[in-house]
Design a protein around this nucleic acid. Structure first.
Length: 438
DNA sequence: AGTAGAATGAAGAGTGAG
DNA sequence: CTCACTCTTCATTCTACT
């Protein structure tokens, strides 16, 4: 087929001997089509996948620097100026990542997907926006170079959550989930307003993470505020506000800052209160920090509602606490089948618990580790269920996010390399379903 | 042994002056 | 355009407990 033995053996080494032939070809082509470094030294084409053991700085230096079309950041301030006679919005949350449009700020844009990315089933992939250089270019390559949709969930909730989504769904006629969630801190936590000092002018929170601020930090901050009788010097104020933003603190009592409680995180992320109640506080915070923002995902998935009035068959990868399932349920799309891969036992318990709590009529099939989805297992699923309508999930971000100080190794990282399972499965399911149709 | 809490920066994006 | 600067980030590892 015109491939060098070296190319083939490298790909097989990466994906294992079981790799389907079409995926093998695709992966080799993907490497070929990537831009060569300017010094002309291609080196190991899978270099970015093999520097696991190297130091962080060295690893990042070796990642390919590919220019991605810069269209992801839209300055809404300008639009707002156009239509609102230049109302001054300086300093407000008026600009940000809006993808192919967010409620109230529709971007005049259409996209044409190539033939091979259209058709069923739909797929929807999610991960963090800020990654080591080259990661989103790599991700996009494994999804037919579909342009990612970068969106900040601050347009859907009170907290920021910058994420990228690669999907092949229509982008017209999206609708928001109902009821509409609170959009400011004040609306979300009215009971806290009496403790909120005027010099803390935040209206939105930063990203919800997997760990909360320590109690000693909050106590130190209280001492500072107490000692100045609520009238901090500019320096003290800046210091307190810096910690507030860094740890996403809220004023829980007079002069007392505190991290969000799990049930408050649930509210902000669009889940029912006590969605994660089945486990301990630390576990809840960890799982919620890794979860979808339901209103954001629901907005994207809303286009499926008229397409599947009788229900949907979902292959849910890296399900976590079930953000995709919750969003589809909130849209009123019956979940006829959900095949879920989730390695964490606690998360499986949370999803199963929600499934029973909401009296789902369909069938929830838990597979555990995503690697259990071999082609034999997928064949079996496709035969018994009759194929899938949607493949959805967000792969582990552990080695991508800036919060990781220790093992930010990119897509080569121990957990984040599971990303490659997603396109593998999409490819196989689509191929198998097509061959059955033909 | 197993868990909850506390300590642990740097990379990348955005901004604005020159 | 560069460059200095500010701001933000789906975390891991170590420690002190039970």
């Amino acid at each position: 087929m015109g491939y060098a033995g070296e190319e083939v053996s490298l790909a097989i080494k990466r994906y294992g001997v079981d790799i389907p032939i079409d995926i093998l070809i695709d992966s080799i082509d993907a490497v070929r089509h990537s831009e060569a470094p300017s010094d002309g030294d291609m080196g190991d084409p899978y270099n970015s996948l093999t520097f696991k053991k190297k130091g962080l700085n060295e690893s990042l230096k070796n990642t390919r620097q590919i220019k991605f079309p810069k269209r992801k950041h839209i300055d809404l301030e300008e639009d707002f100026y156009e239509t609102n006679r230049r109302v001054k919005l300086k300093g407000s949350m008026s600009s940000g990542l809006v993808g192919f449009g967010v409620p109230g700020h529709h971007v005049d844009r259409c996209r044409k997907l190539k033939d091979f990315s259209q058709g069923l089933p739909y797929f929807y992939f999610e991960n963090v926006y800020i990654t080591p250089k080259g990661v989103w270019e790599e991700i996009s390559r494994f999804f037919h170079n579909i342009e990612p949709e970068f969106v900040d969930s601050k347009f859907f909730s009170i907290s920021s959550r910058k994420r990228g989504y690669v999907h092949n769904m229509p982008i017209d006629n999206r609708v928001q989930l109902y009821p509409l969630p609170p959009m400011t801190i004040k609306e979300a936590f009215p009971e806290k307003q009496k403790f909120w000092p005027s010099w803390d002018e935040r209206t939105k929170l930063n990203c919800i993470n997997t760990v909360a601020a320590s109690a000693p930090l909050c106590l130190r901050l209280r001492d500072i505020v107490n000692l100045c009788n609520g009238q901090p010097t500019p320096e003290e104020r800046d210091m307190v506000l810096l910690q507030c933003k860094k740890w996403n603190l809220v004023w829980a009592n007079p002069d007392q800052l505190a991290p969000l409680e799990p049930h408050e995180m649930e509210l902000v992320l669009g889940y029912d209160k006590d969605h994660t109640r089945v486990c301990g506080r630390t576990e809840r915070i960890r799982s919620l920090g890794n979860a979808f923002q339901v209103e954001t995902v629901g907005y994207h998935l809303s286009v499926l509602k008229p397409l599947y009035p009788k229900g949907i068959k979902v292959l849910s990868l890296f399900s976590g606490i079930g953000g995709a399932e919750v969003a589809l349920h909130c849209l009123g799309i019956p979940l006829n089948y959900v095949v879920s891969t989730e390695i964490c036992k606690v998360n499986r318990l949370i999803l199963r618990s929600w499934w029973e709590k909401t009296h789902q009529k369909g069938k929830l099939i838990e597979v555990g580790d995503v690697k259990n989805l071999t082609k034999e297992r997928l064949d079996e699923m496709i035969n018994s269920i009759g194929g899938f309508d949607l493949i959805i999930g967000g792969s582990p971000c552990n080695n991508l996010t800036g919060s990781n100080r220790c093992t930010r190794h990119g897509l080569a990282g121990e957990q984040s390399s599971l990303f490659y399972e997603f396109p593998r499965i999409v490819k196989y399911v689509r191929g198998t379903m097509r061959s059955k149709l033909a």
